[in-house]
């Protein structure tokens, strides 16, 4: 220190300036490095949580659809506005899950189900949702569309339609109508409804592998399709969500399966309500002419189809 009260000389001051600048730069750089490391960690946590939520939507969605279908099978009561009902239940489940993430990881999580509707493939239901995850200033916001398979879910339609006509029973794989389907058809004044005494239809929705459908023109293929209880794509048949509402037909691209009359000893050719489920369960059914697809121990196994369905499945016109 000089004797004029200066702490340092001008020269020392000049030397210190760049040193101070350099130190400042180093401090700033290390701060930025630490900050970006923190950002990466936060970003990973946000992204992984968003992925987890996204992966859970189809799993939860299928669970909700299964529970809804099983509930209808149990009670026989259709639900009103299935799209809204299922969406709300799924929304509630996703909210619970979001809350879990929020509490455990300190993230702001919001999964909003935008819509739940039929997909272009009737064996799928489409869910649109927005997943929002935020941690401080890191935000992941994504709108996604996912398809859920409805295969292996129970077909709720017969349980709704036959509830007031004696109900139906089920085995491991099939729905057994007993006399309820005849009573249902008689109530609609349909002729030759008796052929559906002890009829049956598949319990679970399974996609028919015999595609294109005209290959059903080989009667053994048709028989195998019936034996396995496969479902087919249909412009007229109701989609799965409309089936939950008890509708046999709907404007969406839907499904159909065959309701199989019990075998008879009578070989005479007759006309009866068309065996496609959307025709039988529609308010106005139309007749089909019988097709004998199997003969076993003197029993004739028949199906009744109109020319429209015969054309679809490659079967001869009557």
């Amino acid at each position: 220190m000089d004797n004029k009260g200066y702490a340092m000389s001008a020269l020392s001051f000049l030397l210190i300036i760049p040193a101070v600048l350099l130190v400042t730069v180093f401090v700033d750089m290390s701060h930025i490095g630490g900050e970006s490391e923190g950002l990466v960690l936060k970003s990973d946590a946000v992204f992984c949580t968003a992925m987890d939520i996204e992966n859970q939507i189809p799993v939860m969605g299928k669970e909700v659809l299964r529970e809804t279908a099983d509930g209808i099978v149990e009670s026989g009561d259709a639900i009103i506005d299935s799209r809204k009902t299922v969406k709300n239940v799924l929304q509630a489940k996703m909210c619970q899950m979001s809350e879990l993430y929020q509490n455990k990881m300190g993230l702001e999580v919001n999964c909003r189900i935008l819509s739940l509707d039929s997909s272009s493939d009737p064996f799928y239901v489409e869910i649109k949702s927005t997943v929002y995850v935020r941690k401080d200033n890191i935000v992941h916001n994504e709108t996604i569309s996912q398809n859920i398979s409805i295969e292996r879910l129970k077909d709720p339609l017969p349980f709704i339609k036959c509830k007031n006509y004696g109900g139906v029973n089920m085995t491991d794989t099939r729905i057994l109508y007993g006399s309820s389907l005849v009573a249902y058809l008689n109530a609609k004044n349909v002729s030759n409804a008796f052929v559906y005494e002890n009829a049956s239809s598949p319990l679970f929705i399974k996609k028919c592998p015999y595609d294109p459908y005209i290959s059903h023109g080989t009667l053994l293929t048709l028989k195998n399709c019936i034996d396995n209880g496969y479902f087919h794509e249909s412009n007229d048949g109701a989609c799965f969500l409309c089936r939950l509402e008890g509708k046999a037909v709907c404007p969406h691209y839907g499904l159909e399966t065959f309701v199989i009359p019990s075998p008879t000893l009578n070989s005479s050719l007759i006309s009866a309500p068309c065996s496609s489920d959307h025709v039988i369960f529609n308010d106005s059914s139309y007749p089909g002419m019988e097709i004998q697809y199997n003969l076993e121990a003197g029993n004739y196994y028949k199906l009744f189809l109109d020319n429209g369905h015969r054309s679809k499945y490659g079967l001869p016109y009557y």
Binding site: R152, D172, T173, F204, L220, T221, K223, N224, D227, N228, N294, E296
Partner: peptide
């Protein structure tokens, strides 16, 4: 011999009957 909902053996073969 027990066709299950998800099992691969739930299928009925064309030779049945």
């Amino acid at each position: 011999s027990n066709p299950t909902e998800n099992g691969s053996q739930g299928e009925v073969c064309p030779h049945i009957n």
